[in-house]
């Protein structure tokens, strides 16, 4: 990957992020700027009919380590969770059960409505299966 591609791609992503922030401001903040930016970039790429190498390079670089970007906010949350212990465990039960139920229902409904799968595209046949 060429470093210049990365910078060009990042520039384009930042421009769409800015456009998203501006549109979100006009929309009174009902939808966050980055989500509007995602939609604008998606529209641009679909109309253009393909992803330029520069945007691919920057996006793949960011998404390969998506986890890291959640850390600062999650640290704030965990510092806060310790003060939540006194409010009981109702919320923890609610989150654990509903998240498990939601994953189960989404996956089963989607499978029920999908044609038989291509066996080459399953966890069992993939190199990084677990």
């Amino acid at each position: 990957m060429h470093p210049y591609m990365m910078i060009r791609g990042l520039t384009i992503l930042l421009i769409f992020q800015s456009l998203g922030e501006m549109s979100a401001h006009v929309l009174n903040g009902a939808i966050p700027g980055p989500v509007v930016g995602l939609l604008l970039l998606l529209m641009f790429l679909v109309i253009r009919g393909g992803v330029p190498a520069s945007i691919s390079t920057a996006a793949d670089g960011l998404l390969a380590h998506l986890s890291i970007f959640f850390i600062p906010a999650a640290v704030g949350v965990m510092l806060y969770v310790s003060t939540l212990a006194s409010t009981g465990a109702a919320w923890a039960f609610a989150i654990a059960l509903s998240t498990g139920a939601s994953i189960t229902v989404t996956a089963l409904v989607l499978r029920a409505m999908s044609p038989r799968i291509d066996e080459a595209d399953t966890p069992d046949s993939s190199a990084d299966a677990q």
Binding site: A58, L62, F69
Partner: peptide
């Protein structure tokens, strides 16, 4: 950069 990474999610969707 969480915001920038969110925008970047458009790329796999476009593909």
């Amino acid at each position: 950069l969480l915001g920038t990474a969110t925008v970047a999610l458009a790329v796999p969707l476009a593909r």
